[in-house]
């Protein structure tokens, strides 16, 4: 049963240095507040998993919290590049980062296999591309027809963190709007945290609402505005200006570092400051 607690407590209890962590949300409901709390608590040596790394992972990679990134599309949606990620890949700043990349279909199927506790998923994909020889996928024949298909390994993150609009006091969660792979990520992970815009007495059914029962979630934490500059449909709007602003700011290492210090790391500090690895 999900335990309702503060964001700082939830992150402190669930996430350890070196963990594989999936903070999901496909453009919508990206758990920025939780990601920032990870950085404030100094979590490091993480394997970050996310279909679309977006600005949040650009920030986490830019401060050096990640040893590896597993992803399928690493851009600033509609704007351009993720400059901190590019700096890490192209120049090893602030540290080199390992990459494992897939297509969206591959990542989505990997999460679905993880949620089903199956070892792999089968799909038609990667055919004719150079991706197949640069990532962890293997051809497989259909045992019934012999058709050549592709097998992708299940994703089973140590921790999944997602954001939703509402939870009730029992920790049952409801999200609506673009559902992404949030449910799959929670069910695939060993431990899970859901941050929510608000805790309500009772979940009202919503068109297209996805309900995740509290008994498959470890912690629920209230984090109003916790998806900004992404959005929580019906509650906050996507801050497209911030995505454009980030494209300019993040090009420069010093400007980036100063911005992070002022707006993220020095803000509500939980463990005394910047990201220092406790157990490198």
């Amino acid at each position: 049963m999900a335990e309702l607690c503060s964001l700082a407590e939830a992150v402190g209890e669930l996430v350890h240095d070196g963990d594989s962590v999936a903070l999901e949300g496909f453009t919508h409901l990206i758990p920025f507040a939780a990601g920032h709390e990870l950085l404030r608590q100094g979590r490091c040596e993480l394997e970050l998993i996310r279909m679309t790394p977006d600005i949040l992972y650009d920030q986490m990679i830019g401060v050096g919290a990640a040893r590896k990134l597993t992803f399928s599309y690493a851009g600033n949606p509609g704007v351009g590049s993720l400059h901190r990620l590019r700096d890490a890949v192209e120049h090893g700043w602030p540290r080199p980062i390992g990459l494992e990349e897939h297509s969206h279909a591959g990542m989505a199927n990997r999460y679905a296999a993880g949620a089903a506790h199956l070892p792999f998923a089968v799909m038609r994909g990667y055919a004719g591309t150079d991706l197949a020889s640069h990532t962890n996928v293997k051809p497989i024949a259909c045992p019934f027809t012999g058709e050549q298909l592709m097998a992708v390994p299940a994703l089973r993150p140590d921790v999944a963190i997602v954001h939703a609009q509402e939870a009730d006091r029992e920790g049952n969660v409801q999200l609506w709007g673009i559902p992404g792979v949030q449910k799959e990520a929670v069910l695939a992970a060993a431990r899970s945290l859901v941050t929510v815009e608000r805790v309500v007495e009772r979940l009202e059914p919503r068109p297209g609402g996805v309900v995740i029962p509290g008994w498959v979630i470890d912690r629920v934490a209230e984090a109003p505005g916790g998806s900004r500059p992404s959005y929580s449909l019906g509650i906050t709007d996507r801050d497209n200006d911030f995505y454009r602003f980030w494209d300019k700011l993040s090009r420069d290492r010093d400007e980036f570092t100063a911005w992070m210090e002022e707006h993220v790391l020095g803000n509500g500090v939980a463990s005394g400051g910047g990201p220092e690895c406790r157990n490198p």
Binding site: F26, G78, V181, E184, D237, R238
Partner: peptide, 20 residues
């Protein structure tokens, strides 16, 4: 839309489905 996931897309869609 700026992104492929802007709120206006979800609000005006006939159906919204998960990525898988």
């Amino acid at each position: 839309p700026l992104s492929i996931g802007d709120g206006e897309l979800a609000e005006t869609a006939d159906a919204i489905v998960s990525v898988p």
